[in-house]
């Protein structure tokens, strides 16, 4: 495939191998492997020691899930600015319920998921009812949730909650952290949702062209509410992982999740205009961002540079997406 463009692959003129290699996910996978190997070599194999490897994957779980939380809203061409603070609120609620209300961990986990889902549904309903742009609505709810999150316990830190939950956060299965495997399972469910369920397909229809969707009998309002609700639920999932894996939570949790939530899907090839998602791309991109994080820790780089790098990569990915779109439109 000398003309290895996306278009050629999508028209199916290339072979099966050609079709795989031109997908953006393939590029990401190659980058991920190459980056991982390079970092392993550069750290003299330190990356491959049991403890480092375990931490690498354990702290990959939240970026994957939070990326997916953003992705489901990007699918309909909107954004959810409140995913980060919502994750924080759900984590605080779970911790509070266990420590202050004395609820058993499973119930607290369910409550955290419930809060996430409810907040997401509220976002969706606000967008549908007020017809205000989702960006503005979630900007407002983000700020409101920030206040609520602080209200749960002020500036204090919750720690010493359910030992079982914390053990789960550090446990491993088949050599991989349980939370990471859990995140992959969630990703698989999201992929199933978009690939196989009627609601998931309708979401993509709404994102691809709201006019065509409406004329095909798809309710765009329903798609919007479902997308935001699912986004909130996934923020709840990210909160549960955070509570389990980090061992303590305070009111600043989730503040640093906004950029990663956009970085993963955007680098992963998800269209900002809606209609196109990639679960594999989002996971791989989260992996790449995590590599950059570890690189910073390994080489003691000023953390500010990391934000700069991630920000630049996001911009580059968007630019690349635009170019790709132009190319595929130019050769019908």
């Amino acid at each position: 495939m000398s003309t290895g463009t996306t278009t050629a692959g999508r028209t199916g003129s290339g072979g099966r191998f050609g079709r795989v290699t031109v997908r953006p996910e393939f590029t990401l996978a190659v980058l991920a492997v190459a980056g991982f190997v390079a970092l392993a070599v550069a750290t003299d194999g330190n990356l491959l020691t049991r403890g480092t490897l375990d931490a690498f994957f354990r702290f990959l779980a939240v970026p994957i899930v939070i990326g997916l939380a953003q992705m489901v809203v990007l699918a309909i061409g909107q954004m959810n600015l409140s995913v980060g603070t919502l994750t924080g609120l759900c984590a605080m609620v779970a911790a509070w319920l266990m420590l202050e209300a004395g609820l058993p961990a499973p119930l607290a986990v369910l409550a955290a998921l419930g809060v996430g889902l409810a907040a997401g549904l509220v976002n969706g309903l606000l967008v549908v009812i007020t017809r205000i742009n989702g960006f503005v609505v979630t900007l407002a709810t983000m700020t409101i949730i920030e206040g609520l999150r602080y209200g749960v316990n002020g500036p204090d830190t919750f720690q010493g909650y359910s030992q079982g939950l914390r053990d789960l956060g550090t446990a491993s299965v088949l050599g991989l952290p349980v939370v990471f495997v859990f995140a992959l399972a969630v990703a698989a469910l999201v992929a199933l949702f978009f690939g196989r369920t009627v609601a998931g397909r309708q979401l993509l229809a709404t994102g691809g062209s709201p006019f065509a969707a409406r004329l095909s009998g798809v309710s765009n309002d329903r798609s919007i509410v479902i997308a935001h609700g699912l986004s909130g639920l996934l923020a709840g999932v990210a909160a549960v992982i955070t509570v389990a894996a980090s061992g303590s939570v305070n009111s600043s949790i989730g503040d640093d999740l906004m950029l990663p939530s956009f970085a993963a899907p955007i680098i992963g090839g998800v269209a900002l205009t809606g209609g196109v998602v990639s679960v594999a791309g989002t996971c791989l991109a989260a992996f790449l961002v995590r590599l950059v994080d570890v690189m910073q820790a390994q080489f003691d780089i000023n953390p500010r540079w990391i934000d700069l790098i991630v920000g630049a990569v996001v911009l580059g990915a968007v630019l690349l997406g635009t170019v790709r779109q132009k190319l595929s439109k130019g050769s019908p």
Binding site: L204, A205, G208, S209, F211, A212, A213, L215, G275, V276
Partner: peptide, 8 residues
């Protein structure tokens, strides 16, 4: 614009 999902 109204009849098709061009990217799908």
């Amino acid at each position: 614009e109204e009849g098709l999902f061009l990217d799908q």
